[in-house]
Every structure is written in C-alpha cells, then in structure tokens.
C-alpha cells in the first residue's frame, strides 16, 4: 500500500494543497488578493484627489454603484470558497475566505457611507425616511446590519470564543446577506438587469450547491447509520 502511494506522482490537487500549506505561497497569494481588492478604492481615491471627472460626469453615482457592486461580488467570492473546496478538493482555499469576506464588508461600508454623505448630504431625517419608505434601501440597510457582526467575529479569537459550531452557524447569515444584496440590487435597477441577473445566478448557484450538498450528506449519514 505505502510503496504505491510513494511511487505514483502526486496529483495536481495534492500539489496545490501542498503549496498552499507553505506560508510563503499563501502570503504571496494574499498579497495579490489584497492588491486586487484595493484597486477599486485606490482608483476612486486617486480620481477624487486628482480629477473626479475621471469617474465620469457623475462621480458620486460611480462611487456608490462601484462600491455596492464590489461588496456583493466579494461576498459571492467568499461564499464560493466552500463549494470550490469540496468540488476541487483543494482545502487550502479556506485560507482566503476571511479576507474576501472582509473586503465585502469594507466595500459595503464605503457604499453605505457614500450614500449617506454624497446622496443624502448627511441629513438624518431624509436617510431614516429612505430606510423606512423605500424597500430597496430597507433591504440594503438590513444586509449591512447583518454583515457587521460577521465582520466583527471573523477573527481567530472570536472563533475560539464562540466555538467552531456556533461560529459556523452564525456565519451562515452570510447567505442571507447575499440574498438581501441581490434583492437590493434588483429593486434599484431600472431597465437594465444584466448585472443584477449575473449576481442572482451566482448567489443561487452557491446557495443551491450548499443545500444539495447538505441533503446529500444527510442521506449518506442515514444510510451509513443503518449499515452500522
């Protein structure tokens, strides 16, 4: 048994996993994700300093839209990690999930604050009216509220404090956040549903995969239980 495993070449998956186990490789990949993740905010910040019109004739609209879309997209990436791990068998992918999730929260916070400042000019009663009266704002606001505890409890310390199973249960709320995000995007779209549709399909795919996977495991567990 042992000799065959030793002589056959390790699979691609095993090699990737081995590489991801090395601290240097993960650190380098994390640096790449960090740079890519910071690119949109860097571009926006640079444009605001040098020439806001680089962001188009309505820079604020570009900022609110871009940050909102990035938030939802990073959330989808973070939710895609588990299905990808299971499908490919590359467990090391888990190392990037927290970072992706925190980027989602970072862009959601920028999205909310640019709406509050640029669109509503910090006028509190108008903001409250929006949240109460406009369903798409209500939903977006709920999504942000729900995201906040997830961002706070994303650290190793919090995983330890809550215990892994409670932590996992809490962080399933990320799916609810993603669903709210898609609804928020859908309801504010006017006539062009290309990107809202892409986001919808992506969220349905990751969530659907999780549901099917859970059912598959339940059936397997039951069968194994009977066999034993």
């Amino acid at each position: 048994m042992g000799p065959t495993a030793a002589t056959s070449a390790p699979s691609l998956r095993a090699r990737i996993d081995a590489a991801l186990a090395r601290r240097g490789v993960t650190a380098a990949l994390k640096a790449v994700i960090l740079a890519l993740g910071l690119f949109p905010v860097g571009w926006i910040g640079g444009a605001l300093v040098f020439d806001p019109l680089l962001l188009g004739a309505n820079p604020a609209e570009t900022i609110v839209r871009t940050t909102g879309e990035r938030a939802l997209q990073f959330l989808i990436y973070s939710l895609a990690i588990t299905p990808l791990r299971r499908i490919t068998g590359i467990n090391g992918l888990i190392k990037f999930r927290r970072m992706l999730g925190l980027f989602a929260f970072f862009y959601a916070a920028l999205h909310l604050s640019s709406y509050v400042g640029f669109d509503r000019f910090f006028v509190l009663d108008e903001i409250l009216k929006d949240v109460v009266k406009r369903p798409f704002v209500t939903v977006g606001f709920l999504a942000f509220l729900l995201m906040t505890p997830l961002a706070v409890t994303s650290t190793q310390g919090w995983i330890r404090r809550l215990g892994p199973s409670a932590w996992t249960r809490l962080h399933r709320a990320a799916y609810a956040v993603a669903a709210l995000g898609v609804v928020h995007h859908w309801w504010l779209a006017r006539r062009d549903f290309v990107w809202p549709s892409i986001h919808l399909v992506a969220v349905v795919a990751v969530l659907g995969w999780r549901v099917l996977d859970a059912r598959r495991r339940r059936i397997r567990r039951k069968r194994d239980g009977r066999a034993a």
């Binding site: 605001l48 806001p52 604020a60 669109d119 509503r120 000019f121 108008e126 406009r134």
Partner: peptide, 17 residues
C-alpha cells in the same frame, strides 16, 4: 418610489447638496 426628490446633485458636484 426610488428617489427622494428633495435634493439634487448639480453635476459635476459630488454632494447632492
């Protein structure tokens, strides 16, 4: 239903002041 019409952004201003 989508936008409060109380204020507006005179382009290219960033703030809807």
């Amino acid at each position: 239903p989508r936008w409060s019409q109380r204020r507006e952004r005179l382009l290219p201003s960033i703030f809807a002041s």
